[in-house]
Simulated scan of single mutants.
Amino acid sequence: MKKLLPLFAIALLFSCNNTAQNLSSKKQEIINAKPVEVPLKKGKARAYFASGCFWCVEAVYESVEGVEESISGYSGGWTENPTYEASNTGRTGHAEAVEIIYDPNIVNFATLVDVYFASQNPTQVNGQGPDRGSQYRSIIFYQNAEQKKIIEEKKTALAEKLDAKIAAEIYPFQKFWVAEDYHQNFEKRNPNHPYIKGVSVPRLKRFQSKMPEVLKDDAKH
């Protein structure tokens, strides 16, 4: 039995290495993919961001003037029809993300990127606050070369300002999967939830204090 243990350990090592290589290959395919550009619908544009728990990010963007709606979901991975439970394993490749529906005549993409960085700890890798894991990693999705340039320039400027490495990854947008109904508008519908009171609301308030000039009137009070 003792002789078999080293062989088992070697087999397990190769299995883990192969799994890691496969995941790395899948991730690289996504990063190298051609971005999908989402057309305007009734004059409204869409943008996609991942930055920790989508309950928090949804509330942040819905406080911004020009944002019509923020929808929680999953993006950045390779698994079809991801669920909350599957995403939480970290094996789907997806991160919790939000779809931002906005009026480009009121707020532009560059400002939405500023909101993104101002509403998080930009140096935290694979998570935000108490939420840890690849499903909570920071990703900014671009739909065309212009958006990619905006993201890269702002990320570089922030890195220089903070003299630190910025954790946000930059992905070409592929597809957004809408999360389960109970996740939508979670902060508004569950104001007394311990996570909302202890994590989400404080994060929202920190952001609002940094960028009061972009807030809707009812978010300034």
Score class of each variant (00 low, 15 high):
1 M>F: 14
1 M>W: 10
4 L>P: 03
5 L>F: 14
6 P>I: 01
9 A>N: 05
10 I>T: 13
11 A>H: 01
13 L>I: 06
14 F>P: 08
14 F>V: 08
16 C>Q: 15
17 N>Q: 14
19 T>G: 11
20 A>Q: 13
21 Q>H: 12
27 K>D: 14
27 K>T: 13
31 I>E: 15
35 P>S: 01
36 V>T: 03
37 E>I: 08
38 V>K: 07
43 G>H: 06
47 A>L: 00
50 A>P: 03
51 S>C: 14
51 S>P: 07
52 G>Y: 01
53 C>S: 09
57 V>D: 13
60 V>W: 09
63 S>N: 12
68 E>A: 14
68 E>H: 13
71 I>P: 04
76 G>P: 04
78 W>S: 06
79 T>A: 08
79 T>P: 01
79 T>S: 11
83 T>A: 07
84 Y>G: 06
86 A>R: 07
86 A>F: 01
86 A>P: 01
87 S>N: 13
89 T>I: 02
90 G>Y: 04
91 R>T: 11
95 A>E: 00
97 A>Q: 01
98 V>W: 05
98 V>H: 03
100 I>N: 05
103 D>G: 05
103 D>T: 04
105 N>C: 04
105 N>H: 10
106 I>L: 05
108 N>V: 04
110 A>D: 15
110 A>T: 10
111 T>L: 14
116 Y>D: 10
119 S>M: 09
120 Q>H: 12
121 N>V: 00
123 T>Q: 08
126 N>T: 02
126 N>P: 05
126 N>Q: 10
128 Q>Y: 04
132 R>D: 00
134 S>I: 09
139 I>E: 03
140 I>F: 01
141 F>K: 07
141 F>R: 03
143 Q>S: 08
150 I>S: 13
151 I>C: 09
155 K>L: 08
156 T>N: 12
156 T>W: 12
157 A>K: 14
158 L>I: 00
159 A>T: 00
159 A>L: 03
160 E>G: 11
163 D>E: 15
163 D>C: 03
164 A>P: 01
167 A>E: 10
168 A>Y: 02
177 W>Y: 15
181 D>L: 08
181 D>M: 06
182 Y>E: 11
182 Y>D: 14
189 R>T: 13
193 H>I: 05
197 K>W: 03
197 K>Q: 12
201 V>W: 11
210 K>T: 06
214 V>P: 13
